[in-house]
């Protein structure tokens, strides 16, 4: 089961961000930063994903989508909130349509602040998430045994 932490699949969803963190998440997968060297692949399918990267705060329309994506992911799973908007709502906290950070809707394991979060910070957050994923995996197996 340690294999999972060696090759986790990543799913990215844009809560209601300005796009800045999204393109930085994509930049992580490209040659200069290259998170594939940690065995991580960017997938588009929630049913196959282990790590959920969410950028941007949550608004009233994306709330249901985020909850649905989270419920579709198999256990164990970790959630990384990328960017200050995903952590707390950021500069958009006072907007009428923003509920707040991602943790108002689903549990978040790792917070990556920054506006926009730099690729180095995102990779660091994902690597931290791997440790949490491994712990969750062990707890999950212990519960089943």
């Amino acid at each position: 089961m340690a294999k999972l932490a060696k090759s986790p699949w990543l799913l990215h969803y844009d809560g209601s961000s300005c796009n800045g963190c999204d393109i930085e998440v994509l930049a992580c997968t490209t040659p200069v930063y290259d998170i594939e060297r940690f065995g991580i692949i960017n997938t588009g399918d929630p049913f196959q994903a282990d790590i959920l990267l969410i950028t941007g705060g949550i608004n009233h329309q994306s709330e249901a989508v985020v909850k649905q994506i989270y419920s579709q992911m198999p256990d164990p799973k970790v959630v990384v909130a990328v960017g200050i908007c995903a952590c707390t709502g950021g500069v958009f906290k006072d907007c009428y349509n923003i509920k707040g950070g991602v943790d108002t809707v689903i549990p978040v394991d790792v917070y990556v602040p920054g506006c926009a979060a730099r690729p180095q910070a995102i990779i660091d957050g994902v690597v931290k998430a791997l440790e949490i994923l491994q712990q969750k995996r062990e707890a999950f197996l212990a519960r089943r045994a």
Binding site: N59, Q61, F92, C95, I98
Partner: peptide, 14 residues
């Protein structure tokens, strides 16, 4: 549409 609507034009008032 509306999944990324934040309403930031309104922020100009505050």
């Amino acid at each position: 549409i509306g999944f990324v609507h934040r309403g930031l034009e309104k922020l100009v008032e505050t």
